[in-house]
């Protein structure tokens, strides 16, 4: 099933949501991603991924409280579900396994 596999960007978004704990809403996710990956992240892309993750059942969302900021519009906060956590863990394990298979991995030169 396609839904069980995480795309690279999906994984990053999912991780960011988990990292932001209680403050994970679309704009914050965007900013955080930009900060850590150094890539310019468009809201349109993140929004679509969030929507897809929710459809796959990897995250769930709720609307926050209304404030006067943002023209009075509420934020939608995301939270990683159990399935999401399983997915992340699996992805990480797969990587670990692969890393462990590499005999000697030395960087030649600086990053």
């Amino acid at each position: 099933m396609k839904g069980a596999n995480l795309g690279e960007f999906e994984e990053l978004v999912l991780l960011t949501i988990a990292a932001l704990v209680n403050d994970a809403y679309s704009v914050a996710v965007c900013d955080e991603l930009e900060k850590h990956t150094g890539r310019a992240t468009k809201l349109g892309v993140v929004h679509a991924v969030l929507n897809r993750l929710e459809e796959k059942g990897l995250v769930k969302s709720r609307l926050g409280d209304a404030t006067s900021a943002r023209g009075g519009k509420r934020k939608r906060y995301y939270e990683v579900t159990h399935a999401g956590k399983v997915g992340l863990t699996k992805a990480r394990e797969a990587r670990e396994t692969l890393w462990n298979m590499i005999p000697g991995f030395n960087l030649e030169g600086s990053i």
Binding site: S26, N51, A69, R70, G71, K73, R74, K75
Partner: peptide
């Protein structure tokens, strides 16, 4: 999804 999307756009606008 209209409300929070509009909120996001408003935030970017500000």
């Amino acid at each position: 999804i209209a409300e929070d999307l509009q909120g996001d756009l408003n935030e970017y606008f500000e």
